[in-house]
């Protein structure tokens, strides 16, 4: 069968797919034009998860978002996991594949969190080599996502935006700009999120993420935001989105909601808000 699917996501809203929304999405996706799934949830041999994914892929462009490869790990990439990613990308042929600038595995321990990296030449070399290996394995360009961070490394000697731009230059990968992560990190690191966006290599951005976060305080009473994906997108992040659109034009934009997942209409309404912002009012 001729595959006529486009090779980029539409510059419209998508949402992170949750199985409890399957029937609602198939009945009426509303403003949602594409779906993102976490790769690691679709690595079984069969059953409902793969059946739902096959059905969704017949109607929607799919973005496969890996959350467990540990691209920033000091050790080699997990060969078994690479093989599973290759298999998934092979049979599904998704429109996009993305992963994180983070590490999550040490030796054989998978820690199930996106852990931070120092921004140094040594980290650049290692991350670039892992991305080369991944892109060769799955036979396509990937998007690399900027992280939420809660602390800094004294050894870091370059800004995150320079680090990401250099990774994209060395590997040819694209970037996934998570604006909630920008806001969370900028608040936590006491830097300016708008300056971050203005420094971001926007030409490489193939996808934008929006999501919710929690608020805490650090030991000294400074705000400490936690990337929870468990709430609505806050107004300052919508403002960053509007600023980004002004700079970059419409981009495929995902609403992420992974914990305390709401009923479908709430999620669809968030996607609708993103759609409204990316439609020029003077058009």
């Amino acid at each position: 069968m001729l595959d006529t699917r486009p090779d980029t996501l539409p510059a419209r809203p998508g949402v992170g797919f949750k199985p409890q929304h399957f029937d609602a999405i198939m009945a009426d996706p509303g403003p949602v034009a594409w779906l993102e799934v976490h790769a690691e949830n679709y690595m079984g041999d069969g059953g409902r998860p793969l059946a739902q994914l096959r059905a969704l892929a017949e109607r929607f462009p799919i973005s496969v978002h890996g959350v467990g490869l540990s691209i920033g790990g000091e050790g080699p990439l997990d060969a078994d996991h690479l093989a599973r990613l290759k298999h998934l990308v092979g049979w599904l042929n998704p429109t996009s594949f993305s992963e994180h600038l983070a590490w999550s595995t040490h030796d054989t321990h998978f820690l199930n969190d996106l852990l931070p990296l120092p921004y140094t030449e040594a980290t650049l070399t290692r991350v670039a080599a892992h991305i080369d290996q991944l892109q060769e394995t799955i036979g396509r360009r990937m998007l690399l996502e900027n992280p939420s961070t809660y602390l800094a490394f004294a050894e870091s000697d370059m800004p995150e935006t320079d680090f990401l731009a250099e990774i994209a230059r060395r590997t040819g990968c694209g970037l996934l700009l998570d604006l909630n992560n920008v806001f969370v990190s900028a608040t936590n690191q006491q830097t300016d999120p708008v300056a971050y966006i203005d420094a971001f290599p926007m030409a490489e951005v193939g996808e934008i993420h929006l999501g919710g976060h929690d608020e805490q305080q650090d030991d000294h009473g400074a705000p400490l935001l936690i990337d929870s994906h468990g709430a609505e997108v806050v107004d300052p992040v919508w403002a960053l989105y509007a600023h980004t659109l002004h700079r970059a034009g419409p981009r495929p934009t995902l609403i992420e909601w992974d914990t305390d997942v709401p009923d479908w209409p709430v999620l669809a309404a968030e996607a609708g808000r993103a759609a409204a912002l990316s439609t020029p009012v003077d058009a």
Binding site: L111, N112, D113, L115, Y150, L151, A152, F153, A154, D218
Partner: peptide, 28 residues
Amino acid sequence: GLTGPDGRPAGKRFAVYRNNVAVSLTKA
């Protein structure tokens, strides 16, 4: 070598990662 924005020790900031690991795996 892990710090807050003011160069002070990471303290509770490191605890966020510790908590994420324990809570997410407990949830699983």
